[in-house]
Every structure is written in C-alpha cells, then in structure tokens.
Amino acid sequence: MLPRSCLVVVRGLLLLLAGCAGTARAETLVIAADLWCPINCQPGAERPGIFVELAREIFAESGITVEYQALNWARTLHEVRRGELNAAIGAGIEDAPDFLFTSTPVAQSRNCFFTRADSTWRFNGVPSLSQQRVGVINDYSYGDELNAYIDQHRHDSARIQVAAGDKALELNLGKLRLGRLDVLLENSWVVQAMLAQQGKAGELREAGCREPDVPIYLAFSPALPSSARYVELFEQGLQRYRADGRLQALLDAYGVGRP
C-alpha cells in the first residue's frame, strides 16, 4: 500500500490530468469580419452584432465557444480561405464562392446608394453612375453588374474610389462629407447604424438601391475538415431560431427588419 503522502500526490496528478483533458476537449470556433454594425459590431461590446450573438447562441447549444475578431475584410477572406480562421461574418456567395455556406442565409443585404442631402442624383442602373465618384470597399461584392463596373474603373478615381482597412466605411463617409465622393455604396442597415452611432441619423439621402437584395451568411473555411460539421450545426440552429421566433427577436433588438 502506498503511503498517504504518495496517495495525495497521485490524486493530485489525476485531477491535473482530468483538468487538462477537459481543456483539450474545449472547442472554440473563431469568426471575423471588418466592423459592419449591426451585423457585427465592436468586439467586447454589450451588443457585438446580430451574426455574433446568433453564432454564439447556436454553437453554445453544442458546447462550442465562439471567438469574434474584428479584421479588415480582405484579411478576413484570406485567413478563412487558408484555414487560419473558421468563418467570415456577413459574406455573400459572390464574396468567396469557394467557402462553405448554409442552405439558409442569416439575412438579406440591401446595398443602397447614399449622397449628401443637397444632391438630386438618383441611381437608375449602372449607366447612371458614369458622372459620379462612387465609394466602395476593397474586396466587397456588390453583385455581378456592379462588380464588373467597379473592376473596370477601379483605377479611375473620377468614377470609383476603393477604401481598405479596418475603418473603410468611416473613411468613405468622411470623404462623402468633404465632397471627395459623390455617392457611397453600402448596406443600408450598416449606414443607418453608423450614422446613429455618430449622432447624425438622417444626415445622408438614400438615392436608390441595388436589386435584388443579396443573401449574406456565416461562411466557413474550405480548408478545415471541421467546417462541414459547423455548417450543419449552424443550419440546424438557423432553422430552429427562425421557426421559434428567436431570430426575429434578435433582429428586433437591433432595430432592423426581417431577414
């Protein structure tokens, strides 16, 4: 029989090993995007964004912790594609067609054209953009027709100006206010939320929207074997949350419409 002191040591080692095993079993899923509030807001905020809260709640039901990082969009797509991150928040299929998507989108993105209040211009198809300096964000997808126009003129600052980095939308808003842009192309929820945050709700004029709306998703890495399981879990969660009203309640909490 082992002396009592040895038993204490053995018991301590067993507890330590059990603790390590528990830590090894803990599962964390890392999602990211540039700040696109209310879709995803400041990390650590009480309301970190619709997609962030939804992902955390759905995956928590399977014992999976969701970590959210704010990164610029081009870097997010690059790191998700390489498997350094698990998923990109708010991606459309055109953003990254090689990613893994749920059958059900989380929401629909309505991309609209915003001008200063004194402008009379309205969007009436791509030809109506020819005399406008339009602000867009690097590596965002705005639909095939607009993407083609942006690619054709992205080196002509009299037509297209591309912002990049963690504060790309703020940069475009600032340029619009200063008269360095004529038109800002952006998700309508996102513009409204940022203007409200800045205490400037209603400052800009909506001058038409792209049709149809674009489905947006939590898009998973094509490089990680775990992605197929995550897609299945998230799809099942979306179906439950739509059916029982929890998704609509979350949208209502952020003051936005139906998905």
Rank of each mutant, 00 (worst) to 15 (best):
R82P: 02
E186C: 11
P212R: 09
S103W: 06
G174N: 09
W121A: 08
R133H: 06
A74N: 03
A164R: 10
R258W: 11
A253L: 04
L184K: 11
G22H: 09
E84C: 02
D213G: 14
Y140K: 07
Q236R: 08
G143Q: 00
V190Y: 04
H78Y: 05
G208A: 06
A228D: 12
P225R: 12
A32T: 01
R47Y: 03
S128Y: 03
P48H: 09
R4L: 14
D213V: 14
L173V: 07
Q108E: 10
R177Q: 10
L54T: 12
S103C: 06
A107L: 11
Y241T: 05
L16S: 02
F113I: 00
L85M: 13
Y142S: 12
Q152C: 08
G49R: 06
Q236Y: 03
W36E: 01
F99D: 03
H78T: 07
Q197F: 06
P212N: 02
A32E: 00
L204S: 08
F113P: 04
E27L: 14
I31N: 02
V214W: 11
A164T: 07
A207E: 00
Y254I: 09
L238K: 03
G237F: 05
E61K: 13
N72E: 07
N72P: 12
A74D: 04
F113D: 02
G165M: 05
A55G: 13
A88E: 04
I64N: 02
V134F: 09
E206Q: 15
E145A: 12
A168L: 03
T120W: 15
A74E: 05
K200V: 11
D166I: 12
A18G: 15
G199H: 05
C41D: 00
E203F: 12
S130W: 10
H153K: 11
E94H: 15
P48I: 10
F113C: 04
S130T: 10
I216D: 01
D144T: 13
T104K: 04
L204N: 03
P43V: 01
W73I: 04
D139I: 05
N111K: 12
R75F: 01
G90R: 08
I160G: 15
Y149N: 01
Y230W: 15
L54V: 07
Q161W: 15
E94T: 15
L185D: 03
R4H: 13
T120S: 14
Q69L: 14
E79C: 01
R110I: 05
G202A: 12
S119D: 15
R81W: 03
A21R: 14
F51K: 02
W36Y: 08
D144I: 11
E94C: 14
R56S: 10
P127E: 02
S5L: 08
E27N: 13
A26M: 10
R258S: 13
I93H: 13
R11I: 09
I89R: 08
M194Q: 14
N86A: 09
C41P: 01
L195D: 00
G174A: 08
Y254G: 10
K167L: 09
E203H: 12
I160D: 05
G12W: 15
A243M: 09
G208I: 01
A55H: 09
S221W: 08
R25E: 04
V231H: 05
G135M: 09
A96I: 08
A163K: 04
A249N: 13
L129F: 07
V30K: 15
H153L: 15
F123I: 01
V80R: 00
L15V: 14
L29K: 07
Y140M: 04
S62W: 02
F99P: 03
